[in-house]
Design a protein around this nucleic acid. Structure first.
Lengths: 258, 258
DNA sequence: TTGCCTCTGTTGCAAGTACCACATTTTGAG
DNA sequence: CTCAAAATGTGGTACTTGCAACAGAGGCAA
């Protein structure tokens, strides 16, 4: 049984999808002429691609299915109240006129949103598009983006250009997220982002880590700091004792958002 | 003469758009039954909405135009086919392995999208998040963001940091948009963006300006180049003679997208 | 080779759609 | 109210699509 189906059918279907990427819709008759096959063949191709979820049929043609939301969107929606409390508690650390660096991450975007709403007269340097976008809603906040290679998953920049750029500044405070909170220090799932965080800390007089309780005792590839380098951890629940003792020993203030 | 025409036609068309937002496509017959009007009325509604760019016709129905997200400006939605043709024509200037700089603007984002879909092995330096975002869909393209102050209207960076950063590179080609095409050269509505464009041109061996016919003879604040500094203008219609002669005198190649 | 399966084209018809011209209703200004 | 423009419905014709059944072409294994 010839199960391979090796003919130019695949090329044809690939061509259909490609054409669909640059036109909102296609008609069967045009496709048939353009690809040199009969309309029935096109119809069968469309039915197969529809079964695979690659496109949607219309009467007489096909369209691309509505785009699936980026993965980052889903993550943004969980633990919203917790992040909001963390953001509110972090505001107490910021004074008008401050110079800040803010890292990427869902929680830091919340902090930035609160800053834009309740503070002002700030200058913020960031490598995250989301942070820059919400901050710029407040015209009294000057937002400076760091350069670097573009990370589409987090919509942020990273790499040597980012690190070198950040080294040219001296700010009052760095506000950073974390993927995991370990006794050895905050960790991040993305090693490239971790180097950016480290650079931000080096250019900041103080460092604040913001992270909700789900990050406790989760370990990831890159530890971007030790707790002795972190001045405050803002979170939404009391930490378990081993971790709390460790931070106390490192003079890291623990701020639990009410 | 009742020129307002404010009857329930607007409600009906709004309903069509709303239904379309939750279904990939609609059929005229179903709409006619659901809204209690004749198919001819629905057909006329769809024709009007198509003229407004709110949807795209298919045989027997309608679909939403691609990427009808709220953040996208109305400006992005007009002249879509023209920009698409311009983008396609611009591809011919790009070779695998090229180093590029791409400026902000609706048309340049289209060029970037086509580059991501049809080219590869490129390195692109840009100050526009839209460009970076669509390019990063292709993992063989390295995207580098320029630093600078953040412009929320265009979602791009600008200012001295951006200009200085771009000066540190030497690329094969700069691809730039324009708000207006004047005999003196391409102009832009945003003076800050114009300085970035100028910086890109200084770092590029060749400069290509992409702009649709609606930009012809429109003047804006900042002229960021003279035509003698531009190697190609990619547009979608033949230019009026005075402008065409001027470009010819400056050795600027005019590429009219078919 | 034979046999079977997949892919494709062809044919005919039913159903759906587009387009046009014209009649009718609705709307809003004067 | 009157009237003209806009909006909508209707009918007819020509065209397009969907569907199903059938037949030919080509590949692959026994």
């Amino acid at each position: 049984m010839g199960m391979t189906g090796r003919s130019n059918k695949q090329e044809r279907q690939a061509s259909i999808l490609k054409q669909l990427s640059r036109a909102p819709s296609l008609r069967i008759a045009e496709l048939a002429v353009g690809l040199g096959v009969s309309t029935e063949t096109i119809r069968r191709d469309l039915d197969e691609l529809t079964a695979l979820g690659r496109l949607n049929r219309t009467y007489g043609g096909a369209v691309l299915p509505p785009e699936a939301e980026p993965a980052v969107k889903e993550r943004e929606k969980i633990l919203l109240p917790e992040r909001e409390r963390i953001a509110q508690a972090t505001l107490g650390l910021i004074k008008p006129g401050n110079f800040l660096m803010i890292g990427s991450g869902a929680t830091t975007v919340h902090v930035a949103r609160r800053l834009a709403a309740d503070c002002g007269n700030l200058t913020v340097i960031t490598h995250a598009f989301g942070v820059a976008s919400v901050l710029s809603a407040n015209p009294t906040i000057t937002v400076i983006m760091a350069p670097g290679r573009f990370n589409p998953d987090e919509s942020c920049t990273y790499g040597g250009y980012a690190v070198a750029f950040l080294a040219g500044f001296q700010v009052d405070r760095a506000i950073l997220g974390a993927s995991g909170l370990m006794p050895g220090g905050p960790t991040d799932a993305d090693a490239e982002s971790a180097t950016v965080y480290t650079a931000m800390m080096s250019s900041a007089a103080a460092t604040t880590v913001v992270a909700d309780h789900s990050k406790v005792d989760r370990s990831f590839l890159a530890r971007y700091a030790t707790w002795s380098q972190v001045d405050q951890l803002v979170t939404d629940r009391e930490l378990p004792l081993p971790l709390a003792d460790r931070l106390a020993a490192c003079d890291t203030e623990i701020i639990v958002a009410p």
